[in-house]
Amino acid sequence: MTGSPDPTTPSILAWAGGLPALRRLTTVFYARVPHDPVLAPVFAGMDADHPEHVALWLAEVFGGPADYTAHRGGHPHMARQHLGRGITEQQRRRWVDLLLDAADEVGLPTDPEFRAVFVYYLEWGTRMALVYSGDDPPPIDAADVPIWQWGQTPPWQPDRRDESD
């Protein structure tokens, strides 16, 4: 994703609290997954380093260093992790819901601008995971990790009511 953010505006990653905040998010989230009846089957046998890998992925997506690409193989590697998993819409939605609960628990920002961009990526990313996990996935190519930036959602405007009412 592209955009032209003001260079003085912090990246989404910085706004979220940096990699430490995303590590807290993925640690809390993935600690719950094995106990969730909807998601446990998807993550059965999950590698102990999975929360760290997802934190690095999210950090790169939200404007941080390309550490996931450098150490894990970037977008092609991530896409391959979903092949043949047969993720359902119920599992996709549950993943988003539990991740948002974890975001609240670990104190990620709740301002409308951050949450709009955060949820926008979660929706897009999980729908791509659904596509890659299905019966006829697209080719896994050398696409770059998508980078989410501010300005991809309309800016929040407070409700302006006519004071004459």
Rank of each mutant, 00 (worst) to 15 (best):
S4D: 06
V119K: 06
A103Y: 01
A142E: 12
T9R: 15
R160M: 11
T8K: 14
P154W: 13
L83H: 03
D47V: 10
A40F: 02
L130F: 12
D165I: 15
L58M: 14
F118A: 10
F29G: 05
E113Q: 12
E89G: 11
D67I: 02
P51L: 04
V61D: 01
L22M: 13
G134R: 01
D136E: 10
E60H: 03
A48F: 15
W124E: 09
L98V: 07
M1F: 06
V42C: 06
P139K: 00
R127Y: 11
A70C: 02
L83D: 03
P65T: 10
H35A: 14
P138W: 00
L130R: 05
A14L: 08
G151Q: 09
D162V: 14
A66V: 02
Y121F: 13
P41H: 02
L130W: 09
E123T: 09
P5V: 04
P139E: 02
A102I: 01
Y68A: 12
A55H: 04
R72V: 05
V54D: 04
A40D: 03
S11Q: 05
F118W: 12
G84T: 03
G84I: 03
R93N: 12
R23V: 15
G3F: 05
R85P: 03
D36Y: 09
G17L: 08
E52F: 06
E123F: 02
V33M: 04
D136Y: 07
G125H: 11
G74I: 05
D111Q: 05
G3Q: 07
P76C: 08
R23M: 13
L56S: 10
L99S: 04
Q81S: 15
Y132A: 08
E60C: 06
W95I: 00
T69G: 10
Y120Q: 13
R32W: 15
L98R: 11
L122T: 04
R161Q: 14
T126M: 13
V106H: 01
A103I: 02
H82N: 12
L39I: 07
R93K: 11
G63P: 06
G45A: 06
G45Y: 14
P37T: 03
S4W: 05
G86Q: 07
A142M: 07
I87R: 08
P146E: 11
I140H: 01
F43H: 06
D47M: 13
L108C: 06
P154V: 13
G74Y: 11
G134Q: 02
D165C: 15
Q152K: 14
T9C: 13
S11D: 02
D104V: 08
P139Q: 00
G74V: 07
A142I: 05
